[in-house]
Design a protein around this nucleic acid. Structure first.
Length: 101
DNA sequence: AAGTTGACTATTT
DNA sequence: AAAATAGCCAACT
């Protein structure tokens, strides 16, 4: 399977808005494939034009990477720069920031 | 070919 | 509200 169909969806997410992994899978026509979306994001290189930082988990938080990768911290900063607010516990209000294609 | 792994999620304690 | 459980599915051993 190709990750391109996931990237195509993520590229449509406007700045300052977020979507969940499951949502991306569903919008790409592959419901139930949330984990593969996570892999697709992990496979992205720094030069990519895909706004990967706008993909968060279903609880509105930034998913933890394995290996203690620092990208989670970067993701939060990028989103805050776009105007997304984080709660004290590090969560995003999906009711307010979720993008509904 | 069978078992493990994990940027996930929904349900149940 | 937070943690454990169970289900998920493609990539990798």
């Amino acid at each position: 399977m190709t990750y391109e169909q996931f990237y195509a969806v993520v590229r449509r997410v406007p700045p300052g808005r977020v979507v969940t992994y499951g949502q991306v899978a569903h919008m790409a026509g592959l419901p139930g494939r949330a984990r593969q979306v996570g892999y697709a994001m992990a496979a992205l290189s720094g030069e990519s034009d895909v706004p990967w930082q706008r993909v968060v988990n279903a609880r509105g938080e930034i998913s933890t990477r394995s290996g203690g990768s620092p990208f989670g911290r970067i993701q939060r900063v990028l989103l805050q720069e776009e105007g997304v607010e984080f709660s004290e516990s590090g969560r995003i209000d999906l009711e307010r920031y979720r993008w509904e294609g």
